[in-house]
């Protein structure tokens, strides 16, 4: 990553020399200016204003009484995280648990479906791809209704059609804690559409000679998948991993289906920040929680990029 940044820096001419170059730079800047203005107004300034808020006791109902409280909010976060009845600790550990379960599940499902739907033997590929992508365009509220209904212990279908006839213990329904966690993972699996398409797109770029060579060398379908497909599409896997992990921590999803601030597809910790913000109106404390989450996410992303060199394959020896 560092080398690529350095290379980018050396490639980009920071000091235009001739009049022509200056003119080109000016016109280019003019074209990208909408994004620059938006970045400053909607991202950079708010991020630092949030940082400022996180050192105050900003309360939405009495904004006039706001005063500087130093690192009190951050001291409170530590208490909230590690004390016995701290809500933040509960929601953060839940979020991490959710990430550990849902992110690999999402990646493996997307990868498995992409492998199957890339098979040359498959008929009606386009229809199958559209059907797998379908849940990713359904609005979040509808997703919640469908799955809550389907999993409902009395009127739903999971117990009635599947678990009971198979003699399995009934599912307690999405309203219990364990049941809700399962619900979250299932709905996470219903948003793999973009990741699935990215992996499928990468698979179509695998040179067929490699498969032939592996075939000649006696590799079966599973070996070909593990030794040819997965290494070559590893950039797509890496990209999906980053996006899935970031979305667990409240960052962007590739195709946002609009989950509400109150529950739904967001992470428990994100939900907790929303509660502090909109139910108790403690904006100062909410800002410090958001900053803490931002830092956790940043650290996770940087750590992921640091591991990338060991397992992500770049054909021209480039790094992430």
């Amino acid at each position: 990553m560092m080398t690529s940044i350095r290379r980018f820096l050396s490639k980009s001419n920071l000091c235009p020399q001739t009049r022509m170059e200056r003119r080109e730079a000016l016109v280019g800047l003019l074209f990208i200016s909408p994004w620059i203005v938006g970045f400053l107004l909607l991202k950079l300034v708010p991020i630092f204003v949030s940082l400022g808020f996180s050192f105050t006791d900003f309360y939405m109902l009495y904004p006039g009484d706001t005063k500087f409280v130093g690192r009190e909010n951050y001291a409170h976060i530590l208490e909230d995280l590690f004390s016995e009845d701290g809500a933040a600790g509960y929601y953060l550990s839940n979020t991490i648990g959710f990430a550990i379960l849902s992110v690999p599940a999402q990646l493996l499902t997307a990868l498995g479906l992409a492998v199957l739907l890339n098979s040359q033997r498959l008929a009606a590929k386009e229809l199958h791809r559209t059907l797998v992508f379908l849940p990713s365009v359904i609005p979040g509220a509808a997703i919640a209704f469908v799955w809550f209904g389907f999993l409902d212990p009395t009127t739903g279908w999971l117990n009635r059609l599947f678990l009971e006839p198979l003699g399995l213990p009934p599912y307690p329904g999405p309203y219990s804690e364990a049941g809700y966690n399962l619900f979250r993972i299932i709905t996470a699996l219903w948003s793999i559409g973009p990741g699935f398409l990215i992996m499928l797109g990468a698979m179509r770029g695998v040179p067929p000679e490699l498969y032939e060579a592996a075939h000649v060398a006696g590799a079966g379908p599973i070996m070909r998948l593990l030794k040819v497909t997965v290494p070559i599409i590893s950039p797509a896997v890496f990209f999906s991993l980053v996006i899935n992990l970031v979305s667990v921590f409240g960052g962007a999803t590739l195709l946002d289906r609009g989950t509400s601030f109150s529950g739904g597809g967001q992470s428990p910790f994100d939900f907790y920040i929303g509660e502090v913000m909109f139910s108790s109106y403690r904006l100062g404390y909410a800002a410090s929680l958001a900053w803490m989450m931002f830092l956790i996410m940043l650290a996770t992303t940087i750590a992921l990029f640091a591991t990338a060199r060991y397992w992500v394959y770049y054909p021209d020896g480039d790094e992430a």
């Binding site: 970045f39 909607l42 991202k43 300034v45 708010p46 991020i47 204003v49 949030s50 808020f53 980053v242 996006i243 970031v246 921590f249 409240g250 960052g251 962007a252 994100d270 920040i273 929303g274 913000m277 904006l283 909410a286 800002a287 958001a290 900053w291 989450m293 931002f294 996410m297 940043l298 992303t301």
Partner: peptide, 13 residues
Amino acid sequence: TVLIPEKITLIPT
């Protein structure tokens, strides 16, 4: 910027 969580820009905006 894709990685910036929504919550952190939410309060000021």
